[in-house]
């Protein structure tokens, strides 16, 4: 199954891409998706994450076709 993983702002620059596709063989948690997408980068403490454009925690389960996003603390307004 394929999922989309997006990165924003300073995290996009750190990872070096704004988006990638991942093929999963079983459902994974958000934290496991991070490890699969960025195997050489430990999960940053400050990291925020979203699943299908809703905030979730690291133990949320990701399934076929989902859109995952990782990003740093927000600074709008």
């Amino acid at each position: 199954m394929t999922i989309t993983v997006k990165f924003f702002a300073s995290l996009r620059e750190q990872i070096g891409t704004n988006q990638l596709k991942l093929t999963l063989h079983t459902p994974l948690t958000m934290e496991q998706v991070w490890t699969s997408a960025c195997p050489n980068t430990p999960l940053p403490e400050y990291l925020l994450m979203a699943l299908n454009k809703e905030y979730v925690q690291a133990d949320a389960i990701v399934k076929e076709g989902d859109e995952v996003a990782f990003f740093p603390p927000v600074t709008g307004g």
């Binding site: 702002a9 905030y55 600074t75």
Partner: peptide, 18 residues
Amino acid sequence: KHRAPFWKQETCSQGCRW
């Protein structure tokens, strides 16, 4: 300001910084 997903990158004399 606390939670909506926006990010600012400033341009100053020393370059850009988030």
